[in-house]
Design a protein around this nucleic acid. Structure first.
Length: 561
RNA sequence: GCACUCGUAACUCAGUUGGAUAGAGUGUCAGAUUCCGAUUCUGGAUGCGCGGGUUCGACUCCUGCCGGGUGCGCCA
């Protein structure tokens, strides 16, 4: 808050606006001021001791109309805002609705986000959660800042697993049966295939042959392919609805089948494609990386080949400013190679590709594995969380309306939030106890706080802005709430800049804690109308920010719970 | 072996471009409600893996070691 004005005002004694702007920071503790300027780094150039510099700057801060006072503490200049001036700004936040903290710096810019990217024929498991909700949150965060966002689900809909599924379907089931059943049935065929193929390796030849037929556009094989894809999409569609995730494009791997050749031509033209052990690769020794394999010895293309084609297609189709790949860090090397190859190809968007890596999920007894059944399906996790939420509602608020919908919001929200509260890079050891914990720093806490605000607003009525006593919210607790409300937008920007949704979740959590402290200490609905209106206004602003923050994360904020 | 990455309280994690006395939650113990929703709030206790370096100042940057994770040509 007020960084610009302060930078301008304190650019004296040879200091530039940039010097000041780069040094301003928020003190650790509220009692040290609202904003501060450490003057140590100016000492050398100014040939003065930091406290002397702070003292010289103090009068320039002191005269600003939004400043109450400035103090010199060691080498710091601590600035305290005029609380009444700050409090006035809450009005705006209270009437901004869901748009609170939004911006327009993204206007005219397009960001592509590649996330979720499910594998066809595999049910949605807990390992798919991070990419899906991180991508979804980044989508909304950028949108909130005015960007045009293109959400891309780069479906894993190509590869020999389709041949395997055809073999399995023909042996133990039928196309009709698969079509009628859900994704778990399809998965059971896949698991059975792997079990039996161990003893009967000829099945793999059969599978390869079927996949070849898909590649060749064979009618019968394509029919199978379409059904498998349809069954999977039906299932993940339900999950996406529950998670509030949407995509603008489902162009997956199969989509790029006919778009790779032109990329390989570019590589050949630039003499980048080299034969090695029968395969065709791009050498990356110069960049301390192993070669990037693009065409197998048998002539088939690879994941990386399709990613190159996808990059070209996206640049051409969307003319992106940035293209983000929300994919686990296991693929760090793959993306480093991919980006380097594209750079060597002089691809126009090469500098704008970014791998947004995140940690992996494992089970308490080791890595997850679909084949041996050591896997947790997301649907089960969501269902259990919703069940638990319903039980708590039954116990605490049995007469509430729309119980099922609220339990869904609370349960699903808790699962989503658990994946968005920490830094992306952290590994996660999955445990039901942790995900189903609704106490402490969880989304049910945020939702509860939101519902508490909503309840107060129902009882207190719409705040009347013509009759406000800002003094009623400039006490320490209220003032902390105000500052948190007003800096929400900064956190949204930080989240976009770092591609870290947790900047938003952390901010909203902090606000909820501050509001609850305020709430306990001060009655909102009091006889004095001016005081009541001020507190209601703050309550409304708080509800807006919590609601907007949860919304950015893809979590509902029910009015009651 | 090489590369990347992580190591903060008993546990799970925050910690702004390096800045003041390193903070939360869980769990634990002790408290708070005649009054707006106790899924709330208040208080107590425990810590930066180890050693060097750069700096006025290092959890943060560099370097060495220790420990965990991931990756390293025909999977995606």
């Amino acid at each position: 808050m007020y960084e610009q004005q302060l930078s301008k005002a304190l650019a004296v004694e040879g200091l530039t606006e940039q010097d000041i702007a780069g040094a301003l920071e928020t003190p650790k503790e509220p009692k040290l001021g609202d904003i501060c300027l450490p003057c140590f780094k100016f000492a050398r150039a100014m040939r003065l001791a930091p406290p002397v510099i702070a003292a010289k700057l103090m009068p320039y801060a002191q005269v600003l109309d939004f400043v109450d006072r400035a103090e010199v503490a060691g080498g710091y200049l601590n600035i305290f805002f005029d609380r009444a001036v700050i409090a006035e700004k809450v009005r705006e936040a209270a009437y901004a609705g869901k748009g609170v903290g939004s911006g327009n710096e993204g206007e005219g810019k397009t960001i592509c986000i590649d996330y979720s990217s499910v594998n066809i024929a595999k049910p949605f498991h807990i390992g798919h959660l991070s990419t899906t909700v991180i991508g979804g949150a980044l989508y909304r965060i950028f949108e909130h800042l005015g960007y045009r966002v293109v959400g891309i689900n780069h479906l894993g809909d190509w590869g020999t697993q389709f041949g395997k599924l055809i073999v399995a379907t023909r042996r133990w089931s039928s196309l009709e049966e698969v079509e009628k059943n859900d994704e778990y049935f399809l998965n059971s065929l896949y698991v059975r295939y792997h079990k039996e193929a161990e003893e009967n390796p000829s099945m793999d030849d059969e599978a390869r042959a079927w996949f070849k037929r898909i590649e060749d556009g064979d009618e019968e094989a394509t029919k199978y392919f379409d059904v498998f894809k349809q069954v999977t999409m039906r299932a993940v569609g339900k999950i996406y609805d529950r998670l509030k995730i949407k995509f603008d494009s489902y162009a997956g791997e199969s989509f790029y089948n006919d778009k790779m050749e032109e990329c390989l031509d570019i590589l050949r033209e630039k003499n980048l494609l080299i034969e090695s052990d029968g395969a065709q690769v791009v050498k990356l020794d110069e960049y301390d990386m192993p070669p990037c394999l693009l065409v197998k010895a048998d002539g088939a293309t690879l994941y990386a080949t399709r990613d190159i084609a996808a990059a070209y297609y996206r640049k051409r189709t969307y003319d992106f400013e940035k293209c983000l790949y929300v994919v686990a860090y296991q693929q760090n090397l793959h993306f480093k190679q991919l980006f380097q190859v594209l750079k060597l190809m002089d691809f126009a968007g090469a500098e704008d590709l970014e791998h947004i890596a995140f940690g992996m999920v494992s089970m308490e007894d080791g890595a997850m594995s679909t084949r041996n059944g050591r896997v947790v399906w997301l649907k089960d996790v969501l269902d259990k969380a919703v069940e638990k939420a319903a039980a708590i509602i039954d116990e605490k608020n049995p007469d509430i309306k729309d119980k099922a919908a609220i339990a869904e919001s609370v349960g699903v929200g808790a699962v989503v939030f658990s994946a968005l509260f920490n830094n992306r890079i952290k590994d996660i050891t999955f445990s039901f106890d942790k995900v189903l914990n609704f106490d402490g720093e969880t989304s049910p806490y945020l939702q509860y706080t939101y519902a508490r605000c909503a309840s107060a607003l129902r009882k207190g009525g719409e705040p009347d802005c013509s009759d406000i006593d800002v003094g009623a919210i400039t006490d320490d607790e209220g003032y902390e709430v105000i500052k948190s409300v007003l800096t929400f937008g900064d956190s949204v920007r930080q989240a976009a800049k770092l591609r870290e949704p947790c900047c938003v979740s952390r901010h909203v959590m902090d606000l909820a804690e501050k509001f609850n402290r305020f709430y306990i200490g001060h009655r909102i609905i009091v006889d004095d109308a001016a005081v009541k209106n001020a507190r209601l206004l703050l309550t409304k602003a708080t509800a807006n920010v919590i609601g907007a923050g949860l919304g950015l994360l893809g979590i509902d904020a029910p009015e009651e719970m």
